[in-house]
Simulated scan of single mutants.
Amino acid sequence: MKKLLVVVALFVATLSNAQKGHIFLGGDVGYSSEKIGDAKSTNFEFAPRVGYMFANTWGVGVEGSIQNIDLAGSPKTERYKIGGFLRYITPITETFAFYADLGGGYQTYSVNDAKGMYAFFTPNLSINVKHGVALNFSIGGIKYDNLDGHNDPRQERFSFDFGNSFNIGISKNFSL
């Protein structure tokens, strides 16, 4: 039930050329697989977002993520995130827009029942394809997260990964 509520509460976001009073939906789906010798790992993530433009260039929204990680020889693990974000959008042309998201939230990790917080700043480029549908591109950002688990030391990560990652997303804009 808890997983279902997270999925329903999170359902998608990102957008280009938003206007006041619009709702935007989008998100990311990711899969990776790695094999080193006999060891294999797979990772699947579903990260929806939904937001509302309260001004022509400002929006606010909620996001979530469900991630399944399978490492050979280790128990399957799951990571859940739920949080919020503030978005600033500025059109460059009728087709292109720049937007940046600043946000954070709560996360859990099934290994040792770890819990913690996360924060991020991510600049993006959006290409308006047609009828409120946009492709969104990011080349990294600034991220921080921490996890506290039972009988494990506190984990903290900070990354400044501009140019070290590449993400593509899709979004849809709806008028109210």
Rank of each mutant, 00 (worst) to 15 (best):
F11A: 13
V12Q: 10
V12T: 12
A13K: 05
T14C: 10
T14E: 12
L15S: 14
L15Q: 14
S16R: 05
S16W: 06
N17S: 06
K20A: 13
G21H: 09
H22C: 09
I23M: 13
I23H: 10
F24E: 14
F24H: 15
F24L: 12
G26Q: 02
G26A: 01
G26W: 04
G27A: 08
G27N: 06
G27P: 07
D28W: 10
D28I: 13
D28Y: 10
V29E: 06
V29S: 05
G30S: 14
G30P: 07
Y31G: 00
S32D: 04
S32G: 11
S33Q: 09
S33Y: 10
E34V: 12
E34F: 14
K35M: 03
I36Y: 15
I36A: 08
G37S: 07
G37W: 06
A39H: 10
A39N: 10
K40W: 11
K40G: 13
S41R: 12
S41F: 08
N43S: 14
F44V: 14
E45A: 15
A47Q: 10
A47R: 10
A47G: 06
V50E: 01
M53A: 05
F54P: 02
A55V: 00
A55R: 05
A55H: 04
T57D: 06
T57W: 03
T57Y: 04
T57G: 01
W58T: 07
W58E: 02
G59S: 00
G59K: 01
G59Y: 02
G61F: 07
G61M: 07
G61D: 10
G61S: 03
V62C: 03
E63H: 04
G64E: 00
G64D: 02
G64N: 00
Q67C: 01
D70Q: 11
D70E: 11
L71N: 15
L71T: 13
L71E: 15
L71A: 13
G73N: 08
S74W: 04
